[in-house]
Write a protein that binds this DNA or RNA. Structure first.
Lengths: 177, 177
DNA sequence: GTCTATAGTAAGATAGAC
DNA sequence: GTCTATCTTACTATAGAC
């Protein structure tokens, strides 16, 4: 059910996601959605953000920080999970979708928190690969920028190889240090 | 008047931009907007895309291709105009705003065209700086990805230095070849 | 917990005076 | 060309049966 909500919000954005869209994507009727989310559409979007945060934590973050693996393996696994997360570039990023201005300031904090977590996780990989603190931070920020940008460009040019090549470049850059 | 429309669409997206928003931003009443755009909101968004396309052509493209300047000067001027265009990272990109899924397929073609033009213009700079055709294309695509991504991350982290540093890095990378 | 039916509101769009 | 006033539709949200 959360998967349906997630798909709608990440592809259409908050304002673009209508209750009819959300109901159809979940297979529930509108009234049933309201039964589960008495606070309405905002609460649905918040639940989606929470769900994604957990998914990222349990998949991407965990694989990037797995102490039983070498940094190289961790990086590979993490990037592979990121590719899965964005369905190889076919799915939009929820950050992008919910950082559109809405009049609500509701998601700004969660988005900033998510990006901070992302950067600090990638920084760990850089440090493990021998980068300085400064370089590790810059590499992580750069990876975030490139992933976000390549998703936009992949969508705009209707060419998901942009996303895939970006992931490959990120890996190559990390491993060439 | 187009400036007001542009501000609303690029910050709120197509679905998020209400006629009330658009009227307020232009200083006109809704009925007056409809007098100028009998085909309604879609026509307003199309006009905004056209307007931006022209602005980019007459400012960014022209400065990047100015035959009276060295490639180095052209790059500097072009990036400087890009910085102005995005108000140093404070304004969102219309590509991002209008590439959200809407049910309308209205803008996909214009966005693809805009990105193609962007890439081919930046490729010229790469070639003028001695890059191979292949490298010039890759550099241009990379610049587009980074600009788009840095705008998303700047907004999400509420830190426009991400955008500014990205522009600086693009310049440095081009000039270090 | 899910549904049909409907309320209430805000949206996109028009009519017609000036 | 711009306005006030209004129409129609789509939206978010609720009531109440099962």
């Amino acid at each position: 059910m959360l998967l349906g909500l997630t798909d709608v919000f990440r592809s259409k954005g908050y304002e673009g996601a209508s209750l009819n869209d959300l109901a159809e994507a979940t297979g529930l009727k509108k009234a049933s959605l309201y039964h589960r989310f008495p606070d309405g559409k905002q609460a649905m979007a918040v639940a989606v953000m929470d769900h994604i945060e957990k998914w990222v934590e349990e998949n991407i973050v965990k694989s990037l920080l797995d102490v039983d693996k070498t940094p190289q393996e961790r990086l590979k696994n993490g990037l592979s999970n990121i590719k899965t997360f964005y369905d190889a570039g076919n799915k939009d990023c929820i950050f992008r979708a919910l950082s559109m201005q809405t009049g609500l300031t509701l998601f700004a904090e969660q988005i900033k928190g998510g990006m901070d977590a992302w950067i600090s996780t990638f920084s760990e990989i850089g440090l493990a690969l021998g980068q300085s603190q400064q370089n590790a931070h810059n590499s992580a920020l750069q990876a975030l920028v490139e992933i976000q940008g390549s998703l936009i460009v992949s969508r705009g040019m209707n060419d998901i190889t942009v996303f895939d090549n970006t992931l490959k470049n990120i890996e190559k850059r990390y491993l060439s240090d």
